[in-house]
Design a binder for these strands. Structure first.
Length: 475
DNA sequence: TAAGACTTTCCTGGTT
DNA sequence: TAACCAGGAAAGTCTT
Protein backbone atom coordinates (compact mmCIF):
# COMPACT_ATOMS: atom_id res chain seq x y z
CA UNK A 1 0.00 0.00 0.00
CA UNK A 2 1.41 3.37 -0.87
CA UNK A 3 2.41 5.82 1.73
CA UNK A 4 -0.26 8.17 2.93
CA UNK A 5 1.73 11.03 1.61
CA UNK A 6 3.99 11.19 -1.33
CA UNK A 7 6.20 13.35 0.80
CA UNK A 8 6.68 10.79 3.51
CA UNK A 9 7.70 7.36 2.59
CA UNK A 10 7.76 4.96 5.48
CA UNK A 11 8.57 1.78 3.75
CA UNK A 12 7.05 -1.30 5.19
CA UNK A 13 4.56 0.51 7.32
CA UNK A 14 0.94 0.29 6.52
CA UNK A 15 -0.97 3.39 5.74
CA UNK A 16 -4.66 3.75 5.59
CA UNK A 17 -6.94 5.64 3.36
CA UNK A 18 -7.76 8.97 4.69
CA UNK A 19 -10.76 11.22 4.44
CA UNK A 20 -11.16 11.96 0.77
CA UNK A 21 -14.20 14.12 1.04
CA UNK A 22 -13.24 17.36 2.57
CA UNK A 23 -14.75 20.70 2.08
CA UNK A 24 -12.16 22.66 0.26
CA UNK A 25 -11.99 26.21 1.17
CA UNK A 26 -11.84 29.03 -1.20
CA UNK A 27 -8.31 29.56 -0.11
CA UNK A 28 -7.41 25.97 -0.73
CA UNK A 29 -6.60 27.13 -4.15
CA UNK A 30 -3.10 27.44 -5.36
CA UNK A 31 -2.33 30.04 -2.91
CA UNK A 32 -3.72 30.70 0.49
CA UNK A 33 -4.40 34.31 0.13
CA UNK A 34 -8.02 33.80 0.95
CA UNK A 35 -7.96 34.01 4.68
CA UNK A 36 -11.03 32.50 6.08
CA UNK A 37 -12.19 32.54 9.61
CA UNK A 38 -12.25 34.04 13.00
CA UNK A 39 -9.34 32.09 14.28
CA UNK A 40 -6.49 34.23 15.38
CA UNK A 41 -3.91 32.73 13.19
CA UNK A 42 -0.83 34.50 14.34
CA UNK A 43 -1.56 33.96 17.99
CA UNK A 44 -2.22 30.29 17.67
CA UNK A 45 0.65 29.76 15.39
CA UNK A 46 2.94 31.33 17.88
CA UNK A 47 1.53 29.09 20.51
CA UNK A 48 2.57 26.18 18.45
CA UNK A 49 5.85 27.46 17.29
CA UNK A 50 7.23 30.32 19.21
CA UNK A 51 9.79 31.14 16.67
CA UNK A 52 8.94 34.26 14.90
CA UNK A 53 8.97 34.45 11.19
CA UNK A 54 9.54 38.14 11.41
CA UNK A 55 9.62 39.72 8.04
CA UNK A 56 9.29 36.50 6.20
CA UNK A 57 5.74 35.95 7.29
CA UNK A 58 4.66 39.47 7.45
CA UNK A 59 1.34 39.57 5.64
CA UNK A 60 2.17 42.91 4.26
CA UNK A 61 5.57 41.94 3.20
CA UNK A 62 6.30 43.44 -0.14
CA UNK A 63 8.45 40.50 -0.94
CA UNK A 64 5.45 38.37 -1.75
CA UNK A 65 7.23 35.47 -0.22
CA UNK A 66 5.69 32.12 0.29
CA UNK A 67 7.09 29.54 2.59
CA UNK A 68 6.92 25.89 2.84
CA UNK A 69 8.52 23.41 5.15
CA UNK A 70 10.67 20.90 3.41
CA UNK A 71 11.07 17.47 4.82
CA UNK A 72 12.12 14.09 3.72
CA UNK A 73 12.39 10.64 5.02
CA UNK A 74 15.59 8.78 5.24
CA UNK A 75 15.17 5.17 4.28
CA UNK A 76 18.46 4.28 5.84
CA UNK A 77 17.69 5.68 9.23
CA UNK A 78 13.94 5.15 9.08
CA UNK A 79 13.42 8.65 10.23
CA UNK A 80 12.16 11.90 8.92
CA UNK A 81 14.73 14.55 8.49
CA UNK A 82 14.27 18.14 7.81
CA UNK A 83 15.97 20.08 5.22
CA UNK A 84 18.13 22.78 6.66
CA UNK A 85 16.26 24.92 4.23
CA UNK A 86 12.63 24.42 4.96
CA UNK A 87 11.36 27.48 3.27
CA UNK A 88 11.55 28.92 -0.14
CA UNK A 89 9.98 31.82 -1.77
CA UNK A 90 7.71 31.45 -4.69
CA UNK A 91 9.12 34.53 -6.20
CA UNK A 92 12.54 33.05 -5.97
CA UNK A 93 11.73 29.48 -5.38
CA UNK A 94 15.14 28.21 -6.06
CA UNK A 95 16.35 30.12 -3.03
CA UNK A 96 16.17 28.51 0.33
CA UNK A 97 15.70 29.67 3.87
CA UNK A 98 16.90 28.24 7.08
CA UNK A 99 14.16 27.52 9.54
CA UNK A 100 16.39 28.11 12.49
CA UNK A 101 17.50 31.37 11.07
CA UNK A 102 14.30 32.55 9.50
CA UNK A 103 15.63 35.81 8.28
CA UNK A 104 18.78 34.44 6.91
CA UNK A 105 18.54 33.52 3.33
CA UNK A 106 20.87 31.03 1.89
CA UNK A 107 22.53 31.28 -1.36
CA UNK A 108 20.25 31.08 -4.29
CA UNK A 109 22.73 28.82 -5.95
CA UNK A 110 22.52 26.34 -3.14
CA UNK A 111 20.05 23.75 -4.22
CA UNK A 112 19.29 20.68 -2.29
CA UNK A 113 21.37 18.64 -4.64
CA UNK A 114 24.27 18.97 -2.30
CA UNK A 115 22.22 17.93 0.60
CA UNK A 116 21.23 14.49 1.73
CA UNK A 117 17.85 15.97 2.30
CA UNK A 118 15.37 15.96 -0.46
CA UNK A 119 13.34 19.00 -0.99
CA UNK A 120 9.91 19.39 -2.33
CA UNK A 121 11.32 21.12 -5.29
CA UNK A 122 13.81 18.45 -6.00
CA UNK A 123 11.09 15.86 -5.72
CA UNK A 124 9.23 17.70 -8.37
CA UNK A 125 12.26 17.89 -10.55
CA UNK A 126 12.33 21.64 -10.21
CA UNK A 127 9.36 22.14 -12.38
CA UNK A 128 9.38 25.66 -13.44
CA UNK A 129 5.78 25.88 -12.52
CA UNK A 130 4.51 28.27 -9.95
CA UNK A 131 1.25 26.39 -9.89
CA UNK A 132 2.91 23.18 -8.86
CA UNK A 133 4.72 25.00 -6.15
CA UNK A 134 1.52 26.42 -4.83
CA UNK A 135 -0.15 23.08 -4.92
CA UNK A 136 2.67 21.56 -2.98
CA UNK A 137 2.56 24.33 -0.47
CA UNK A 138 -1.10 23.94 -0.04
CA UNK A 139 -0.67 20.27 0.48
CA UNK A 140 1.97 20.68 3.12
CA UNK A 141 0.10 23.41 4.90
CA UNK A 142 -3.37 22.06 4.64
CA UNK A 143 -3.32 21.17 8.32
CA UNK A 144 -3.21 24.83 9.17
CA UNK A 145 -6.68 25.28 7.77
CA UNK A 146 -8.42 22.61 9.74
CA UNK A 147 -9.14 21.69 13.25
CA UNK A 148 -6.61 19.09 14.35
CA UNK A 149 -9.38 16.55 14.73
CA UNK A 150 -9.96 16.92 11.03
CA UNK A 151 -6.39 16.27 10.04
CA UNK A 152 -5.67 13.40 7.79
CA UNK A 153 -2.76 11.14 8.56
CA UNK A 154 -0.75 13.17 6.09
CA UNK A 155 -1.59 16.35 7.88
CA UNK A 156 -0.69 14.83 11.21
CA UNK A 157 2.74 14.25 9.79
CA UNK A 158 2.84 17.69 8.28
CA UNK A 159 2.06 19.19 11.66
CA UNK A 160 4.55 16.93 13.37
CA UNK A 161 7.36 17.85 11.04
CA UNK A 162 6.53 21.48 11.06
CA UNK A 163 6.30 21.62 14.82
CA UNK A 164 9.43 19.62 15.26
CA UNK A 165 11.31 21.97 13.06
CA UNK A 166 9.95 25.05 14.66
CA UNK A 167 10.67 23.81 18.14
CA UNK A 168 14.15 22.90 17.12
CA UNK A 169 13.78 19.22 17.79
CA UNK A 170 16.37 16.90 16.47
CA UNK A 171 14.44 15.62 13.51
CA UNK A 172 16.73 12.68 13.00
CA UNK A 173 15.62 11.41 16.38
CA UNK A 174 11.97 12.19 16.00
CA UNK A 175 9.98 9.01 15.46
CA UNK A 176 7.50 10.56 13.12
CA UNK A 177 6.70 7.23 11.57
CA UNK A 178 5.06 6.21 14.80
CA UNK A 179 2.36 8.77 14.08
CA UNK A 180 1.85 8.06 10.45
CA UNK A 181 -1.17 5.85 10.87
CA UNK A 182 -2.96 8.33 13.04
CA UNK A 183 -5.52 10.68 11.67
CA UNK A 184 -6.26 13.88 13.48
CA UNK A 185 -9.02 12.69 15.69
CA UNK A 186 -6.93 9.81 16.87
CA UNK A 187 -4.03 12.11 17.53
CA UNK A 188 -6.18 14.43 19.59
CA UNK A 189 -7.41 11.55 21.68
CA UNK A 190 -3.99 10.33 22.61
CA UNK A 191 -3.06 10.72 26.21
CA UNK A 192 0.27 12.10 27.20
CA UNK A 193 1.34 8.60 28.09
CA UNK A 194 0.43 7.40 24.63
CA UNK A 195 2.34 10.27 23.10
CA UNK A 196 5.37 9.33 25.11
CA UNK A 197 4.91 5.73 24.22
CA UNK A 198 4.92 6.60 20.54
CA UNK A 199 7.70 9.10 20.81
CA UNK A 200 9.69 8.60 24.00
CA UNK A 201 11.94 11.59 23.59
CA UNK A 202 9.63 14.28 22.30
CA UNK A 203 6.24 12.83 23.03
CA UNK A 204 5.61 15.03 26.04
CA UNK A 205 6.56 18.17 24.16
CA UNK A 206 4.48 17.24 21.18
CA UNK A 207 1.53 16.46 23.40
CA UNK A 208 1.81 19.81 25.09
CA UNK A 209 2.12 21.63 21.81
CA UNK A 210 -0.94 19.91 20.46
CA UNK A 211 -2.92 20.76 23.58
CA UNK A 212 -1.68 24.29 23.39
CA UNK A 213 -2.82 24.45 19.84
CA UNK A 214 -6.21 22.99 20.69
CA UNK A 215 -6.86 25.34 23.55
CA UNK A 216 -5.97 28.30 21.44
CA UNK A 217 -8.66 27.66 18.91
CA UNK A 218 -11.96 29.41 18.59
CA UNK A 219 -14.81 28.02 16.64
CA UNK A 220 -17.55 29.26 14.53
CA UNK A 221 -21.17 28.87 15.09
CA UNK A 222 -22.75 26.53 12.61
CA UNK A 223 -25.10 28.14 10.22
CA UNK A 224 -27.76 25.57 9.66
CA UNK A 225 -27.26 23.26 12.49
CA UNK A 226 -29.55 23.03 15.44
CA UNK A 227 -28.81 24.01 18.98
CA UNK A 228 -28.40 20.35 19.75
CA UNK A 229 -25.55 20.28 17.40
CA UNK A 230 -23.95 23.12 19.27
CA UNK A 231 -24.15 21.20 22.45
CA UNK A 232 -22.89 18.05 20.88
CA UNK A 233 -20.03 19.68 19.18
CA UNK A 234 -16.82 18.93 20.97
CA UNK A 235 -15.64 22.30 19.79
CA UNK A 236 -18.19 24.27 21.62
CA UNK A 237 -15.99 25.93 24.11
CA UNK A 238 -18.60 28.42 25.13
CA UNK A 239 -17.04 30.97 22.94
CA UNK A 240 -19.06 30.55 19.83
CA UNK A 241 -18.57 33.30 17.46
CA UNK A 242 -21.56 34.39 15.44
CA UNK A 243 -19.34 35.13 12.53
CA UNK A 244 -20.73 33.31 9.54
CA UNK A 245 -18.82 30.41 8.30
CA UNK A 246 -16.27 31.58 5.82
CA UNK A 247 -17.05 28.63 3.68
CA UNK A 248 -20.73 29.30 3.62
CA UNK A 249 -20.37 33.00 3.43
CA UNK A 250 -18.65 32.37 0.17
CA UNK A 251 -21.57 30.34 -1.07
CA UNK A 252 -24.10 33.04 -1.25
CA UNK A 253 -23.10 34.54 -4.50
CA UNK A 254 -22.83 32.74 -7.76
CA UNK A 255 -19.39 31.80 -8.84
CA UNK A 256 -19.38 34.14 -11.75
CA UNK A 257 -20.30 36.96 -9.47
CA UNK A 258 -17.40 36.08 -7.24
CA UNK A 259 -15.14 35.90 -10.20
CA UNK A 260 -16.40 39.10 -11.58
CA UNK A 261 -15.88 41.02 -8.44
CA UNK A 262 -12.84 39.46 -6.99
CA UNK A 263 -10.33 41.23 -9.06
CA UNK A 264 -11.89 44.55 -8.40
CA UNK A 265 -12.16 43.83 -4.70
CA UNK A 266 -8.63 42.71 -4.69
CA UNK A 267 -7.47 45.83 -6.33
CA UNK A 268 -9.40 47.87 -3.83
CA UNK A 269 -8.08 46.06 -0.85
CA UNK A 270 -5.38 48.00 0.78
CA UNK A 271 -4.09 45.76 3.47
CA UNK A 272 -4.53 42.64 5.39
CA UNK A 273 -6.05 42.99 8.79
CA UNK A 274 -4.29 40.84 11.29
CA UNK A 275 -7.39 40.82 13.34
CA UNK A 276 -8.99 37.91 11.62
CA UNK A 277 -12.13 38.32 13.65
CA UNK A 278 -12.71 41.71 12.20
CA UNK A 279 -11.60 40.43 8.88
CA UNK A 280 -14.31 37.84 8.78
CA UNK A 281 -17.00 39.97 10.22
CA UNK A 282 -16.65 41.91 7.05
CA UNK A 283 -17.06 38.63 5.19
CA UNK A 284 -14.32 39.50 2.83
CA UNK A 285 -13.45 36.75 0.43
CA UNK A 286 -10.93 38.44 -1.70
CA UNK A 287 -7.35 37.42 -1.66
CA UNK A 288 -4.88 39.01 0.58
CA UNK A 289 -2.66 41.47 -1.12
CA UNK A 290 0.32 39.25 -1.35
CA UNK A 291 1.20 35.69 -2.03
CA UNK A 292 2.02 34.87 1.53
CA UNK A 293 1.29 31.35 2.50
CA UNK A 294 -0.55 32.19 5.64
CA UNK A 295 -0.12 29.22 7.85
CA UNK A 296 -2.31 30.68 10.51
CA UNK A 297 -6.02 30.56 9.83
CA UNK A 298 -7.83 27.32 10.22
CA UNK A 299 -10.12 26.94 7.33
CA UNK A 300 -12.84 24.91 8.82
CA UNK A 301 -15.84 25.20 10.92
CA UNK A 302 -17.56 22.76 13.13
CA UNK A 303 -19.59 21.52 10.23
CA UNK A 304 -16.50 20.13 8.69
CA UNK A 305 -15.96 17.61 11.34
CA UNK A 306 -16.04 13.91 10.95
CA UNK A 307 -16.80 13.06 14.50
CA UNK A 308 -20.12 14.75 14.93
CA UNK A 309 -22.07 12.10 16.75
CA UNK A 310 -25.28 12.26 14.80
CA UNK A 311 -25.42 9.17 12.69
CA UNK A 312 -28.74 8.18 11.29
CA UNK A 313 -27.48 4.97 9.88
CA UNK A 314 -27.94 2.29 12.41
CA UNK A 315 -24.54 0.86 13.21
CA UNK A 316 -26.16 -2.53 13.13
CA UNK A 317 -27.79 -1.97 9.79
CA UNK A 318 -26.61 -3.50 6.56
CA UNK A 319 -25.90 -0.05 5.20
CA UNK A 320 -23.55 0.73 7.97
CA UNK A 321 -21.88 -2.63 7.58
CA UNK A 322 -21.51 -2.05 3.89
CA UNK A 323 -20.09 1.32 4.52
CA UNK A 324 -17.68 -0.03 7.05
CA UNK A 325 -16.66 -3.01 5.03
CA UNK A 326 -13.97 -1.14 3.24
CA UNK A 327 -12.19 -0.54 6.50
CA UNK A 328 -12.02 -3.80 8.32
CA UNK A 329 -9.35 -2.75 10.73
CA UNK A 330 -10.28 0.77 11.56
CA UNK A 331 -12.33 2.29 14.27
CA UNK A 332 -15.79 3.63 13.53
CA UNK A 333 -14.89 7.17 14.30
CA UNK A 334 -12.11 7.04 11.86
CA UNK A 335 -13.90 5.24 9.14
CA UNK A 336 -16.77 7.61 9.38
CA UNK A 337 -14.71 10.09 7.47
CA UNK A 338 -13.59 7.71 4.80
CA UNK A 339 -15.07 6.31 1.66
CA UNK A 340 -14.32 2.95 0.20
CA UNK A 341 -12.03 3.06 -2.71
CA UNK A 342 -11.25 6.69 -2.43
CA UNK A 343 -7.77 7.99 -2.57
CA UNK A 344 -6.14 11.30 -2.69
CA UNK A 345 -6.16 12.85 -6.07
CA UNK A 346 -3.09 12.40 -8.12
CA UNK A 347 -1.32 15.43 -9.41
CA UNK A 348 -1.68 14.82 -13.10
CA UNK A 349 -2.00 17.58 -15.63
CA UNK A 350 -5.52 17.66 -16.81
CA UNK A 351 -8.23 20.08 -17.70
CA UNK A 352 -11.33 20.03 -15.66
CA UNK A 353 -14.29 18.57 -17.52
CA UNK A 354 -17.03 20.84 -18.61
CA UNK A 355 -17.43 24.07 -20.34
CA UNK A 356 -14.55 26.41 -19.79
CA UNK A 357 -15.34 29.46 -17.80
CA UNK A 358 -16.05 32.61 -19.64
CA UNK A 359 -12.70 34.25 -20.14
CA UNK A 360 -14.33 37.56 -20.74
CA UNK A 361 -15.26 37.79 -17.12
CA UNK A 362 -13.08 40.27 -15.30
CA UNK A 363 -10.56 38.71 -13.01
CA UNK A 364 -11.12 35.27 -14.32
CA UNK A 365 -7.58 34.43 -15.19
CA UNK A 366 -6.25 35.57 -11.88
CA UNK A 367 -8.91 34.21 -9.65
CA UNK A 368 -9.43 30.95 -11.34
CA UNK A 369 -7.75 28.15 -9.48
CA UNK A 370 -5.57 25.83 -11.39
CA UNK A 371 -7.20 22.46 -11.48
CA UNK A 372 -4.52 20.14 -12.51
CA UNK A 373 -5.32 17.18 -10.45
CA UNK A 374 -7.05 14.21 -11.78
CA UNK A 375 -10.58 14.00 -10.56
CA UNK A 376 -11.98 10.77 -9.35
CA UNK A 377 -14.19 8.91 -11.67
CA UNK A 378 -17.33 8.66 -9.68
CA UNK A 379 -20.75 9.85 -10.71
CA UNK A 380 -22.44 12.59 -8.85
CA UNK A 381 -25.49 10.58 -7.99
CA UNK A 382 -23.29 7.86 -6.52
CA UNK A 383 -21.36 10.42 -4.59
CA UNK A 384 -24.61 11.74 -3.18
CA UNK A 385 -25.70 8.26 -2.31
CA UNK A 386 -22.41 7.55 -0.58
CA UNK A 387 -22.77 10.69 1.45
CA UNK A 388 -26.24 9.63 2.46
CA UNK A 389 -25.02 6.34 3.84
CA UNK A 390 -22.10 7.96 5.56
CA UNK A 391 -22.83 9.08 9.10
CA UNK A 392 -20.15 11.69 8.72
CA UNK A 393 -22.31 13.52 6.21
CA UNK A 394 -25.80 12.36 7.01
CA UNK A 395 -27.57 14.23 8.53
CA UNK A 396 -25.04 16.98 8.79
CA UNK A 397 -24.99 17.83 5.11
CA UNK A 398 -27.84 15.88 3.65
CA UNK A 399 -30.30 13.35 4.97
CA UNK A 400 -32.86 10.81 4.00
CA UNK A 401 -36.45 11.86 3.95
CA UNK A 402 -37.48 8.37 3.04
CA UNK A 403 -34.60 6.04 2.72
CA UNK A 404 -36.59 3.15 1.38
CA UNK A 405 -38.03 5.31 -1.37
CA UNK A 406 -34.77 7.08 -1.99
CA UNK A 407 -36.02 10.51 -1.07
CA UNK A 408 -33.39 12.74 0.38
CA UNK A 409 -32.87 16.34 1.22
CA UNK A 410 -29.90 18.66 1.17
CA UNK A 411 -29.38 20.09 4.61
CA UNK A 412 -26.41 22.20 3.67
CA UNK A 413 -26.62 22.38 -0.06
CA UNK A 414 -23.56 24.48 -0.60
CA UNK A 415 -21.51 22.37 1.76
CA UNK A 416 -22.40 19.29 -0.25
CA UNK A 417 -21.48 21.16 -3.39
CA UNK A 418 -18.15 21.96 -1.85
CA UNK A 419 -17.67 18.33 -0.91
CA UNK A 420 -18.39 17.39 -4.47
CA UNK A 421 -16.10 20.10 -5.70
CA UNK A 422 -13.40 18.86 -3.39
CA UNK A 423 -13.91 15.37 -4.66
CA UNK A 424 -13.57 16.56 -8.23
CA UNK A 425 -10.81 19.02 -7.47
CA UNK A 426 -13.04 21.83 -8.43
CA UNK A 427 -13.19 24.56 -5.86
CA UNK A 428 -15.61 26.53 -7.97
CA UNK A 429 -18.40 24.08 -7.51
CA UNK A 430 -21.61 25.55 -6.22
CA UNK A 431 -24.97 24.14 -5.43
CA UNK A 432 -26.24 25.90 -8.50
CA UNK A 433 -24.00 23.80 -10.66
CA UNK A 434 -24.43 20.66 -8.68
CA UNK A 435 -28.18 20.95 -8.93
CA UNK A 436 -27.92 21.41 -12.66
CA UNK A 437 -26.01 18.19 -12.87
CA UNK A 438 -28.63 16.58 -10.68
CA UNK A 439 -31.36 17.72 -13.03
CA UNK A 440 -29.67 15.98 -15.89
CA UNK A 441 -30.45 12.78 -14.03
CA UNK A 442 -34.14 13.35 -14.49
CA UNK A 443 -33.83 12.66 -18.17
CA UNK A 444 -31.61 9.73 -17.56
CA UNK A 445 -34.03 8.21 -15.15
CA UNK A 446 -31.72 8.22 -12.19
CA UNK A 447 -33.60 10.88 -10.25
CA UNK A 448 -37.27 11.65 -10.05
CA UNK A 449 -38.70 15.06 -9.43
CA UNK A 450 -40.17 15.83 -6.06
CA UNK A 451 -42.63 18.56 -6.82
CA UNK A 452 -42.98 21.53 -4.58
CA UNK A 453 -40.19 20.67 -2.22
CA UNK A 454 -37.00 22.59 -2.25
CA UNK A 455 -33.70 20.81 -1.89
CA UNK A 456 -35.47 17.47 -2.01
CA UNK A 457 -34.63 14.86 -4.62
CA UNK A 458 -35.54 11.29 -5.13
CA UNK A 459 -33.46 8.47 -6.47
CA UNK A 460 -35.26 6.42 -9.04
CA UNK A 461 -35.71 2.74 -8.44
CA UNK A 462 -33.11 2.16 -11.09
CA UNK A 463 -30.56 4.27 -9.25
CA UNK A 464 -31.38 2.77 -5.89
CA UNK A 465 -31.06 -0.73 -7.19
CA UNK A 466 -27.81 0.07 -8.87
CA UNK A 467 -26.37 1.80 -5.83
CA UNK A 468 -27.51 -0.81 -3.38
CA UNK A 469 -26.33 -3.64 -5.55
CA UNK A 470 -22.96 -2.07 -5.88
CA UNK A 471 -22.72 -1.62 -2.13
CA UNK A 472 -24.36 -4.90 -1.22
CA UNK A 473 -27.11 -3.09 0.60
CA UNK A 474 -30.48 -4.65 1.11
CA UNK A 475 -33.49 -2.92 2.56
C1' DT B 1 -10.11 7.79 -33.64
C1' DA B 2 -14.93 8.54 -33.03
C1' DA B 3 -18.98 8.58 -30.60
C1' DG B 4 -21.55 8.71 -26.71
C1' DA B 5 -21.70 9.49 -21.76
C1' DC B 6 -21.01 12.56 -18.35
C1' DT B 7 -20.00 16.90 -16.09
C1' DT B 8 -19.31 21.77 -15.80
C1' DT B 9 -20.37 26.37 -16.89
C1' DC B 10 -23.30 30.05 -18.45
C1' DC B 11 -27.56 31.73 -19.05
C1' DT B 12 -32.66 33.07 -18.89
C1' DG B 13 -36.72 32.82 -16.69
C1' DG B 14 -39.75 31.27 -13.14
C1' DT B 15 -41.11 30.18 -8.20
C1' DT B 16 -40.88 30.35 -3.23
C1' DT C 1 -34.20 40.17 -2.60
C1' DA C 2 -32.18 35.78 -2.03
C1' DA C 3 -32.36 31.12 -2.74
C1' DC C 4 -33.87 27.67 -5.37
C1' DC C 5 -35.68 25.32 -9.57
C1' DA C 6 -35.93 24.28 -14.54
C1' DG C 7 -33.80 23.52 -18.61
C1' DG C 8 -31.24 24.93 -23.12
C1' DA C 9 -26.79 25.31 -24.88
C1' DA C 10 -21.92 24.84 -25.24
C1' DA C 11 -17.73 22.68 -24.39
C1' DG C 12 -14.72 20.01 -22.09
C1' DT C 13 -13.01 15.06 -20.34
C1' DC C 14 -13.64 10.20 -19.98
C1' DT C 15 -14.97 5.68 -21.47
C1' DT C 16 -15.84 2.31 -24.77
Amino acid sequence: MPSASPLYNFSGINNEIDCPYRIPSIEAQNDTRYSSNNYDSLQSLSAMADQSFNGIFSPNSPSYSSHIPVTSYSSSTQSITSSPSPYFTTSEYNCMYNTNLPNQRRSCEGSSNDSPFQTVLSKKGFHDSRDDVFNEQDQLLSWTRKHPENWSSEEVLDWLIYTGQEKGLNMSELRAEAFQNLCGIELCRLSIEEFINLEPKYGKSLYEMLKHLLTGLSFQKPVDITADYQELSPYNNGNNNPTPSPVRSHFGSPAYHTMTNRKQEHSNYNGYNNNTDVYWKTERQEPMPCDVIDIGPYDFDVNDHPAVPQPTVDPCSPEFDAFMSGYPNTAPVRTACCFPGSTYPQALPRRRPGRPRNKSLPGDEESRPHKDKKAKNQHLWEFIYDCLINPAYNPQFLRWENQREGVFRFVQSEAVAQLWGGFKNNENMTYEKLSRAMRHYYKRGLLERVEGRRLVYKFSRKALDRAREKRHITL
